[in-house]
Amino acid sequence: MIKVLFSARPAAWDEYEAPLRRAFDAAGLDCDLSRDHAPQDTRYIVFAPNGPVKDFTPYVNTRLVMGLWAGVETVVGNTTLTQPLARMVDDGLTRGMIEYVVGHVMRHHLGMDAHLAGQDGVWRDTVYPPLAKDRPITVLGLGALGAACGQALAALGFPVTGWSRSQKQIDGLTCLSGDDGLTTALSGAQGVVLLLPQTPATDSILNARSLALLEPGAFIVNPGRGPLIDDAALLAALGSGQVGAATLDVFRKEPLAADDPYWSHPRVTVTPHIASTTRPDTAAQVIAENIRRGEAGLPFLHLVDRKAGY
């Protein structure tokens, strides 16, 4: 029997136990799922950083640690974690992110806030958007989520430029990489979507210099990671009008402090890190597939590159 340890916050057990058991059965896996397996008996760990396992040293027979989250920045630097680490990539997470990004991009593109806030009897017929084809959008980060969101926006008619650390080729997108590529990707962009991982190289990638490259009045949507943005630079750009609006789902410190200026800024929308979350039913299928592959001697899916940090 394959012993699978579930290490996440206690409430997550109630959400994941039944979907995981169903997924194991569907995959023909004889798994013993528990929160209490002895380390030496544990073959696989289903893991979230808010769970009880912090020291992986005793898990000498563990073949794979499978994260429940897309981001791994809080665990990838754990020096006791010598086992292979897989991050969560699943259809539910991707679909949720597409819906969030498309919804907020369309909100800013259409200028909906001007009409929603202006229900005061004034006929604002001068507030209307260009066509999507005339609104260039840049997506920073072309992993599974960034690529999917970029293609969804391109399908609506937006010209989408994507940027990533390494060169990619994705249907429907203009793909750039490197420092020069970043400058080109941001120059004249009217909207920017941030879906990069959090690494030392991406910290404050949106700063005073890069924000100045945008078309004046551009909007920012950040469902990626809070440290991607230099907060002081963004607030200054909002104050000058260089940035017209921002939807922010992630922050350097969460929950966002009650007195943080983002809360009260008239052109900032704060959402509480809910852009997309892992769905137990779809995530369980990914976990079961990786266990199946491990037992069959096949390569694992979605392994983290420790040197790259994601």
Rank of each mutant, 00 (worst) to 15 (best):
L156C: 10
L248Y: 01
I98L: 01
A26E: 13
A296C: 12
G103N: 11
Y128S: 15
D179E: 15
A218I: 04
V193S: 01
R135N: 14
P200Q: 05
V160F: 07
T82E: 13
L211A: 09
N207I: 01
V53F: 02
D36Q: 14
I170S: 02
L195G: 04
V192G: 04
L256W: 02
D203G: 12
Y310H: 07
A189T: 05
P129S: 12
A18V: 12
P200C: 06
G191F: 06
G162A: 12
S240T: 14
N290C: 08
N222A: 01
Y100F: 15
A201G: 13
P280K: 05
A148G: 06
E73T: 08
T282P: 02
G77T: 07
H302D: 13
R21H: 04
Q198M: 14
D260Q: 03
S204R: 15
V53D: 02
I220Q: 07
G162Y: 09
K54T: 14
A296V: 10
F219L: 04
G146Y: 04
F158T: 00
T80I: 11
T199M: 00
A288W: 01
V250D: 00
F47R: 03
A144S: 15
H37P: 02
A233G: 05
A8M: 02
A257C: 11
I287G: 01
K54P: 06
A233H: 07
G239P: 06
I170V: 13
V89C: 09
G188P: 06
M112A: 15
V139L: 04
E289C: 09
E295T: 11
R225I: 01
A208Q: 10
Q151V: 07
I98F: 04
A132K: 10
E254L: 03
A212R: 04
T278S: 12
G96T: 00
D179Y: 09
L173C: 01
V221E: 04
A288D: 03
I287C: 01
A152M: 02
V250S: 00
Q285S: 12
G51M: 04
L186C: 06
A23Q: 07
K253D: 14
V60K: 13
A12H: 11
T80F: 12
R95A: 13
